[in-house]
Design a protein around this nucleic acid. Sequence first.
DNA 1: AAATGTTTTAGACGCATGTTTCAATCGCCC
DNA 2: GGGCGATTGAAACATGCGTCTAAAACATTT
Lengths: 230, 230
Amino acid sequence: MPDDLHSSSADATQQRLLQAAGEVFAEKGFHAATVREICARAGVHNIAAINYYFRDKENLYAETLRFAARSPLYENLASEWPTSAATAEKLRWFIGLLVEKIVLASRERPLWHMQLMMRELTQPSPIGERIAQEFIRPVYETLWTILREALPRDVSEKKLHLISFSIVGQCMYHRIARHVIRLIVGEQEQNTYDAKTLTEHITEFSCRALGLDRKKSGSKSQVGTRGGKR
Amino acid sequence: MPDDLHSSSADATQQRLLQAAGEVFAEKGFHAATVREICARAGVHNIAAINYYFRDKENLYAETLRFAARSPLYENLASEWPTSAATAEKLRWFIGLLVEKIVLASRERPLWHMQLMMRELTQPSPIGERIAQEFIRPVYETLWTILREALPRDVSEKKLHLISFSIVGQCMYHRIARHVIRLIVGEQEQNTYDAKTLTEHITEFSCRALGLDRKKSGSKSQVGTRGGKR
DNA sequence: AAATGTTTTAGACGCATGTTTCAATCGCCC
DNA sequence: GGGCGATTGAAACATGCGTCTAAAACATTT
């Protein structure tokens, strides 16, 4: 028999605890989550392990949040920037990133990462406030850069803020209010809201609102509301 | 001395408990809220009052949610419908209603009503799931009616859903992510986001996206992104 | 094989929670 | 004024929580 058969071999219990804690915290929140349930889901038979590996429950929570913050979103924001593309295409790239990395559960990463982060963003706790702030800032700064380039110079900073909230709000709503959306359209249709569909819709909606053409970086638009089938 | 001077005269302790419970539940959530803090904030010196007037903590929570659901939003949705106005004006009326009654704290009603409702909508609990569902349904049905009239007939139902989520998402984001917004623009600027400002921006943004004119119920639009100061 | 540092186990601890109990008090009607 | 239901008061209850302690089991090195 292979020597890595017994349960606690390669996958250190510390990492299993972090994984399980992330899931439970994301589902139930800090207070409703119990260390006993976390240990049970991690397959750890004793609850003292949390105090052994992590100091206490609060530190465990902060650690899971730190882990979730190390998302691939960061690297994408920094590296894969399409510098040469038209402004409308940059906006599509940004919206696609938000939808793919935050809104929808990606196959590469477990879904509790962004669930937990959203929880901290909508209801910040003293424990993870800082972490969540440092997570969300670069997102808006990236969007600002794109919008500054896309819009006329005389657009006020306040208007720019409102526009960015309109765009980010559209994206985030599909994660934050996913229970409401499921209620309205049913689980079946919600499953058809994949990354491509949402990105296409929100980009189209926003570009028309801003008068951005999809081909060049001009500021005039061509309208005509034909949604059609998809 | 007047006979209604003592603290527990006209304002029944039951109502003070409901009010206090609503505030605490809205701020901290069901689990983090304690009956002792609720009683303290209500000025009730003994904690058994909660089990006396309301059966238990869960029922108290459901009762506060029921109270919050009886919002003036309902009456407005049913009665003050501007039937004769242009479709763009109907959309502005709807957005204005959402912003005023849900997003911003109105003077007429305490702010915990919608705080609590948003909490239940974003993270539904078995206790209040039904109440929250019955609250949000009419909102979307009203928006559907407006959009159906405003958009061409060949717009698919799925597209209509996506559009409605784009509009509602823009509005709700200012309540759900108000901590993020405060972080981004600062508390000072956030205070300038009054009902009029938000309604105007979201209406303009959405009407342009849909190609709706602001005067007639036509489907052509006139663009030119001039934000300017407000 | 012995020693040493690391991890796991079992159990108990103190504390805060929601709930219950029962007596005391108040308001009101006959 | 006495009787009586409704309300309030104070204390105690059981339970579940996060944390701690100390010994056992394990792994690794000497």
